[in-house]
Amino acid sequence: MRYTLIGGSGVLLDMLAFLLLHNSAGMHEQLANALSTTIGITNNFVLNARITFDRRDRIVVRFLRFYAVGMTGILLTNLLFLLFTDSLGIDANLVKAGSLPLVLALQFVLNRKWSFA
């Protein structure tokens, strides 16, 4: 439950940053995705380390692992942009929003088994 609530705050930050960077600033969706996801990853790491997993040891190593897991989400979403936005013309905002459940599920499993093990 805590992971879900914290994840929700990261998703909200990620989506808001993406919308601002892509729609308002005109940044390409893949760069906007990398930056917005990094904001969400950082938020989620800090909160999960303190609240969900209660792990404060080896913080740098854990963050690097957590960010590496986050990179899987960035890569997956960027692949979806290539497939759905670039190839099929589907709006990048919809692709970003639609990618989130898949990315979150993948990251939860990887973080639980590797980042905070």
Score class of each variant (00 low, 15 high):
Arg2Phe: 04
Thr4Lys: 03
Leu5Thr: 14
Leu5Val: 14
Ile6Asp: 09
Gly7Asn: 08
Gly7Pro: 02
Gly8Phe: 12
Ser9Phe: 08
Ser9Pro: 00
Val11Lys: 00
Val11Phe: 10
Leu12Lys: 06
Leu12Val: 15
Leu13Thr: 10
Asp14Tyr: 07
Met15Tyr: 13
Met15Ser: 11
Ala17Gln: 02
Ala17Glu: 09
Phe18Cys: 06
Leu21Ala: 07
Leu21Phe: 13
Asn23Glu: 14
Ser24Asp: 09
Ala25Val: 08
Ala25Arg: 08
Gly26His: 09
Met27Glu: 01
Met27Cys: 11
Met27His: 05
Leu31Ser: 09
Ala32Pro: 00
Asn33Pro: 05
Ala34Arg: 02
Leu35Arg: 00
Ser36Ile: 06
Thr37Leu: 03
Thr37Tyr: 09
Thr37Gly: 02
Thr37Arg: 02
Gly40Ala: 04
Ile41Asn: 02
Thr42Ala: 14
Thr42Val: 14
Asn43Pro: 03
Asn44Trp: 01
Phe45Gly: 01
Phe45Ser: 07
Phe45Thr: 06
Leu47Thr: 01
Ala49His: 11
Arg50Ile: 05
Arg50Pro: 00
Ile51Ala: 09
Ile51Trp: 15
Ile51Lys: 09
Phe53Ser: 08
Asp54Tyr: 00
Asp54Cys: 07
Arg55Ala: 05
Arg56Thr: 11
Asp57Ile: 09
Arg58Ile: 01
Arg58Glu: 11
Ile59Met: 15
Ile59Tyr: 12
Val60Glu: 13
Val60Ala: 14
Val61Leu: 13
Arg62His: 06
Arg62Thr: 01
Leu64Val: 11
Leu64Asp: 08
Leu64Thr: 10
Phe66Thr: 04
Tyr67Pro: 03
Ala68Asp: 02
Val69Pro: 04
Gly70Asn: 03
Met71Tyr: 00
Thr72Ser: 13
Gly73Ala: 04
Ile74Cys: 04
Leu76Ser: 01
Leu76Asn: 04
Leu76Arg: 00
Thr77Phe: 01
Asn78Asp: 15
Asn78Glu: 15
Leu79Arg: 02
Leu80Cys: 04
Leu80Asn: 05
Leu80Gln: 10
Phe81Ile: 02
Leu82Val: 04
Leu82Gly: 14
Leu82Ser: 08
Leu83Thr: 11
Leu83His: 07
Leu83Pro: 07
Phe84Gln: 08
Phe84Tyr: 09
Thr85Lys: 13
Thr85Phe: 10
Asp86Ile: 00
Asp86Arg: 14
Ser87Arg: 15
Leu88Tyr: 12
Gly89Cys: 08
Gly89Tyr: 14
Ile90Val: 15
Ile90Gln: 10
Asp91Trp: 15
Asp91Gln: 15
Ala92Ser: 13
Ala92Asp: 05
Asn93Arg: 15
Leu94Val: 15
Leu94Glu: 10
Ala97Phe: 05
Ala97Arg: 00
Ser99Lys: 04
Ser99Arg: 09
Ser99Leu: 07
Ser99Thr: 12
Leu100Ile: 13
Leu100Ser: 02
Leu100Lys: 06
Pro101Ser: 05
Pro101Trp: 09
Pro101Gly: 08
Pro101Cys: 06
Leu102Ala: 10
Leu104Ala: 10
Leu104Lys: 02
Leu104Tyr: 10
Ala105Val: 14
Leu106Met: 12
Leu106Lys: 00
Leu106Phe: 08
Leu106Gly: 07
Gln107Val: 02
Gln107Asn: 14
Gln107Leu: 04
Phe108Thr: 01
Val109Tyr: 13
Leu110Asn: 01
Asn111Ile: 03
Arg112Ala: 06
Lys113His: 12
Lys113Val: 01
Trp114Thr: 10
Trp114Ala: 09
Ser115Trp: 01
Ser115Gln: 00
Phe116Ala: 07
Ala117Leu: 04
